[in-house]
Design a protein around this nucleic acid. Structure first.
Lengths: 153, 153
DNA sequence: CGAACTCGTTGGATATCCCAACGATAGGGC
DNA sequence: GCCCTATCGTTGGGATATCCAACGAGTTCG
């Protein structure tokens, strides 16, 4: 067993690869790829899907809200919504009480796409967690949720 | 409780944000930021640090080996090694038995930087896992390790 | 020897992130 | 009422990360 107090440069990679940040990064990359491939069947990118889903859940939403909730740059949100609107999946309407804002809503076509994507995304997630038992999946989700909540508090 | 069999588009975001891929992605993003900020004090980017560490551990390595081990595109590896070599942290020598390959080694300066970065990276990882008890950290690492091993098998 | 492969390298495409500005609008304090 | 600050959507520019395709040089194997 090597010393933990004075890092040994010769085993630095083993260090890194056993580090939580590295592991979670690799797992996240794989999950990203799985979901990305899955919903590509519906012609959507990852963030486009997330934005569409967020719009569906929160009814009429402003773009700034979407940006904050999904941690997406407002600049990029413009492009994402432009694409979704061009595809006829969402609609930008003037906000009734605040003329600065846009009220983004989902179209029936968007809902349909989202329904199909939901199944695909869940399949991808199931594939990611395939090596774990149902109990272990709950544990993992609980742990990740706590890390995420603290970070976004 | 909503149905899990027929995805409900109206709660799709809650869906997404409670999905493993999303969760692990957010946690990974935070961890990435923490480590990135930490080792920025030594003037290294994330992947530069990883490559430096891998080079230190595996002695003389070829670039293709580094790319495979760290899941980095060979194209990006060129740039990373160029930077590290310009900084005098690694050395590219001709491979003795295969003239296509480069034998990459760490310089004493690289070892010194790596030693300091190791401590910084560990501090960043500790911060990421701060909300968890030591037992929970072990659980998380064990679960992530299994997901990662299966993926790279 | 020739075919298939690997290696390092270059080029290009795309996505994400960050910073800064702008006109239009809203809200609070005077 | 009027100003001051802040927010919203949008545009612009740039830095960075990731991925795919190709190429010449070199290796390996039939």
């Amino acid at each position: 067993m090597t010393s933990d107090l004075t890092p040994d440069p010769a085993s630095a990679l083993q260090h890194i690869q056993s580090l939580p940040t590295w592991l979670v990064g690799r797992v996240a990359a794989r999950g990203r790829g799985l979901v990305s491939d899955a919903i590509a069947a519906e012609g959507l990118k990852l963030m486009q899907h997330a934005v569409l889903a967020a719009t569906a859940e929160y009814g009429p939403v402003t773009q700034a809200d979407l940006s904050r909730r999904l941690s997406v740059d407002p600049k990029d949100m413009v492009g994402i919504l432009n694409h979704l609107q061009d595809e006829g999946l969402v609609l930008r309407s003037p906000h009734p009480s605040d003329r600065r804002k846009n009220a983004v809503t989902v179209t029936p076509a968007g809902t349909a796409v989202l329904t199909r994507c939901g199944a695909l995304a869940e399949a991808a997630n199931a594939e990611l967690l395939a090596p774990l038992t149902p109990d272990e999946r709950k544990q993992l989700m609980a742990l990740l949720t706590r890390l995420h909540e603290v970070a976004s508090a």
